[in-house]
Nucleic acid binder design. Structure first.
Length: 350
RNA sequence: GGAGGUGUGGCCGAGUGGACAAUGGCAGCAGACUGUAAAUCUGCCGGGCUUCGCCCUACGGUGGUUCGAAUCCACCCGCCUCCA
């Protein structure tokens, strides 16, 4: 899922996004609640009509903002109260209000409100946090059936639960048990991509993914680097979202099969080689030109780089799906992993 | 011709006796970024070294005052503005 927090992938039109073959876009309830506000989206006929994106949309609930905006919120058993990062306004999210808001926008996949705990965290604190997240999940699941009063009369398509429990196997297992008992349309693994080391990240996937029902989608929230995705796919994860390809593109880092290209580096000043492989959006764009666009701060630089990175990621996922279909995932994953390891400029992260 | 102003590191621009190799910004070089408070942030940025320190060269030029000068004085050079 390309990430379009405010309803758009930064730098791309909906046409450009669908041209890349994107199937599902992620948006964010916290950010959309502040601007333009759910009422506005409701009045305009829901999030698809509002954004013009006709493909599926998943909205994150604001649980991640409990972590990322930790200094601007207060959590209690009933929910979370944010102080807007824009103007300090109070914004109250409860499990029920979050479900209702996503119904009103008519999103395809709604996420329950969860508490994304920080890292590091003790097992005792993680357990307290998980207990709250679990109660919220039950509340959200009950609220899900209630039809909201909305202008658009829309409903969300499905509700996903979010497995928390930090790095602790006992807690992750308990979380899975609670959530599967509530019968969600899909299950997400949350609480990663909060600054933890790769070993922890991978351990969480390995201890959680196998416990999730095989017939429901498994969504790993917030990841990741190509290496992270490769690892998670081999462990049975189906769905990903990550700001990395889009954000890094805007910051001048391009993902390729050979590793990472930092296009702003002086070495690309007169590099005639194309940015992307044949058939990709930037197959006809030289590294020298893209370097020039970044150096001169042309808006087109970040836009083209975003096209490139999203294409690379979506193509990467396409190849993995193909590998799964052919029953050759482990072969493919092994080959890809070694390529990233041997990349000319190294992998995406240490 | 007269009057006034000004000259600082690649550029712009602070600094008007010691805390100054000299605030900022730009440019330059590199790094970071994982459910987006991010077209953002961080580091380096006169030269050399044994780089939490030392040495050299530096605030238009020359000379001087002073224990000490980018800062004060004299002369010279350049540039700008106004008047004629």
């Amino acid at each position: 899922m390309p990430v379009g927090t405010l309803g758009a992938v930064k730098g791309l039109s909906v046409d450009a996004l669908s041209g890349l073959g994107a199937q599902l876009m992620l948006a964010n309830l916290y950010h959309l609640s502040l601007r333009p506000g759910i009422d506005v989206i409701d009045r305009l006929g829901g999030i698809h009509a509002f954004t013009g994106w006709s493909g599926p949309i998943l909205t994150d609930s604001g649980g991640f903002q409990i972590w990322s905006l930790a200094s601007l919120r207060k959590v209690d058993d009933g929910g979370v109260t944010f102080r807007s990062h824009l103007d300090g306004d109070e914004l109250r999210f409860t499990p029920e209000s979050v479900v209702a808001a996503q119904h009103r926008m008519g999103v395809d996949i709604a996420m329950v409100l969860d508490e994304c705990p920080p890292w590091p965290i003790s097992e005792a604190d993680a357990e307290i946090s998980l207990a709250r997240t679990s109660r919220w999940a039950e509340t959200a699941r009950r609220a899900w059936e209630e039809t909201p009063e909305s202008v658009s009369g829309l409903r969300a398509g499905g509700l996903f639960g979010i497995v928390q429990g930090s790095v602790y196997p006992r807690l992750r297992a308990r979380a899975v048990e609670v959530l599967t008992g509530l019968d969600f349309a899909g299950y997400a693994v949350g609480g990663v991509s909060v600054g933890e080391e790769m070993v922890h990240r991978h351990a969480v996937v390995e201890m959680t993914a196998p416990l999730l029902p095989a017939e429901r989608p498994r969504y790993l929230m917030g990841l990741g680097t190509p290496q992270d995705i490769l690892h998670a796919v081999t462990w049975g994860i189906d769905l990903f979202d990550c700001v990395l390809p889009a954000r890094n593109a805007r910051h001048g880092t391009l993902f390729t099969d050979q590793g990472v290209i930092k296009i702003k580096n002086a070495r690309y000043l007169d590099d005639p080689r194309p940015v992307g492989p044949p058939g990709s959006p930037l197959a006809g764009t030289s590294r020298a030109f893209l370097h020039h666009l970044f150096r001169t701060k042309e808006i087109t630089g970040p836009v083209l780089a975003t096209l490139h990175n999203l294409h690379h990621y979506l193509d990467f996922m396409r190849r993995l799906r193909e590998g799964i279909k052919l029953g050759k995932l482990s072969e493919l994953a092994g080959a890809m992993a070694s390529r990233y390891a041997d990349g000319e400029t190294g992998g995406a992260s240490a």
